[in-house]
Amino acid sequence: MRSPDPFVPSLFRVDRVRRESADTVTLGLLPIQGEIPAFRSGQFFMLYAFGIGEIPVSVSGLWGQGPLLHTVRAVGPVSQALCRLRPGDTLGVRGPYGSPWPLPQAEGGDLLLIAGGLGLAPLRSALLPALAERERYGRIALLYGARSPADLLFGEERSDWSSRDDLQVEVTVDHASPAWRGSVGVVPARISHTRFAPERTHAFVCGPEVMMRYSAAALLGAGVPPARIFLSLERNMKCAFAVCGRCQFGSTFICRDGPVFAYDRISRLLSLREL
């Protein structure tokens, strides 16, 4: 009996497709055989589009609650092919890989989720379980920044979140016309408008790296300890289990030691150019 080949994906079928914005969809995937492998919020899978290639995509949903959810933005050949998939289509899936958001560690204190752009998708997978066990946390706040109002994701769900009185939701965009009734400005600037006790807060940040660096700086300025700030990093990766060497970031492999890192572990690396 041969051991499994870690490079060979499992075949999944697209169960549903939800369009989130002009260039972003959420795919609901079901295995053609067997079960969805157990995964945790913050982890990622490698998704293969026939003949085009494979990319890492974080989970945007929860394990044990329906299809495997991945939110994909069409920016490269593989993500464009994934965004063109329709219900019934087949794709390759392998995973899960990487480190999860440290939700259990955050219990008992305040939880700050700071999302930029597509970064809301991985943080959705942290927000949902926190809301499902709301009593385990102090205050919970979601700060979400996007390019423009048309780029905002998870519209219906966000209005449900905004209507909860046990969750503070701050949404802001970089660019807007006067028709936009919400906030214009960058995410880190919203941190000072968020209610949390810095010394007992865990902050999970996901978005473009520059936005995460600025957010981490604002969190430090607000008094959140660096060991309780977590960022989800991104680098080129091919294998997802630390043998292709591509996602090295200092001593770490982002696929294996990340993508979720405590800020105190990587702050020095983040400051280095072209690492």
């Binding site: 930029g116 597509l118 996007a146 970089d174 960058v186 600037a189 473009p208 600025y214």
Partner: peptide
Amino acid sequence: VQRLEAVRLQLLDVYGETP
């Protein structure tokens, strides 16, 4: 200083289509 930093970040258009 805070507003200058915010404007810089905004200027980057970090969520833009073509970084």
